[in-house]
């Protein structure tokens, strides 16, 4: 008993060290920009860089749009599949998994062929069109995670009975969706949203090949040309991700104690 507990602790320490030591190394390196002393010069350099603010703001906006439009696509789809065509579920699940096996570069080249300036729908012909295309591509990339998060949340409630109860009380389809279904799958929507945020903030291929000023290509650019700033950016990116995860845990923890509102 005592031996197995020591073994478990050793496993935890080794596992934690595997993740923490490189991070500590990165953090430590990011603080050594000024020779001989620890400083936050690298962070100051990053935060004062107008490109950082521009790309970070741009990617945050893209993430927000991806979350909103992604949820408007995924929640009604998952709901409809559960309610009306449950036999289609394996097919829909397979389709949502495709972005995991089709490389982003293949998808983006497909976009470039389909929506170039000489096509019927020349989305790449202007910045707004390309931004729309980028949001679509982010929705595609996050689909495997978002669909599963929402579908799992739907499994926790009896979608069919709630729908029928609302219908018998005179509710229309939109009322059912926004008053009865969305609030009750909010935990899935939130976890999907945070995963989407993390994906969008770090995505490089789509943004670079569509030539958009996103945070992913900026990270790559800084990494290729500077020494300490990339480490600072990595720490910042980790912090953002952790904050997202922490927020997710906080919200889902609060939701375990209280219902969705």
């Amino acid at each position: 008993m005592k031996g197995s507990r020591i073994g478990a602790w050793i496993a935890v320490i080794v596992g934690a060290s595997y993740f923490i030591i490189p991070l500590l190394g990165t953090l430590e390196f990011s603080l050594r920009m000024r020779r001989g002393v620890y400083s936050i010069d690298a962070y100051a350099s990053v935060f004062t860089d107008p490109q950082f603010r521009a790309t970070f703001g741009y990617s945050m906006l893209m993430a927000l749009l991806t979350i909103v439009f992604g949820m408007l696509l995924v929640v009604p789809t998952a709901y409809w599949v559960r309610l009306r065509v449950p036999r289609m579920r394996p097919i829909v699940e397979f389709i949502t998994l495709l972005p995991l096996v089709i490389p982003a570069i293949v998808i983006v080249f497909g976009y470039l062929r389909m929506y170039n300036s000489s096509s019927v729908l020349p989305l790449t012909g202007n910045a707004m069109g390309t931004n729309i295309l980028l949001v679509f591509s982010y929705i595609t990339l996050s689909l495997p995670y978002v669909y599963r998060a929402v579908d799992t949340a739907m499994r926790a409630i009896d979608v069919r009975v709630l729908t029928e109860a609302a219908e018998s009380l005179g509710a229309s389809w939109t009322t059912i969706m926004f008053k009865c279904i969305f609030p009750n799958v909010m935990s899935g929507v939130l976890s999907g949203a945070f995963i989407t945020l993390a994906i969008v903030m770090g995505e490089f291929t789509m943004a670079a090949l569509l030539n958009r000023p996103a945070f992913g290509p900026y990270l790559q650019l800084v990494g290729a040309n500077k020494a300490y700033e990339p480490s600072a950016l990595a720490v910042i990116a980790f912090t953002i991700t952790w904050l997202s995860m922490g927020l997710l845990n906080l919200i889902s923890g609060a939701r375990r104690g209280a219902p969705a509102r």
């Binding site: 009896d158 009975v161 029928e164 109860a165 609302a166 018998s168 009380l169 005179g170 609030p183 219902p259």
Partner: peptide
């Protein structure tokens, strides 16, 4: 359609809306 029939229904699984209070559930219709 079901929402046009003015029929009240009670289900085996209660089917109360989990995100609403008792008051809001009763007031829903």
């Amino acid at each position: 359609k079901p929402n046009q029939r003015n029929i009240g229904m009670v289900f085996q699984a209660y089917a109360l809306f989990p995100n609403m209070t008792v008051y809001d559930n009763v007031a829903f219709g």
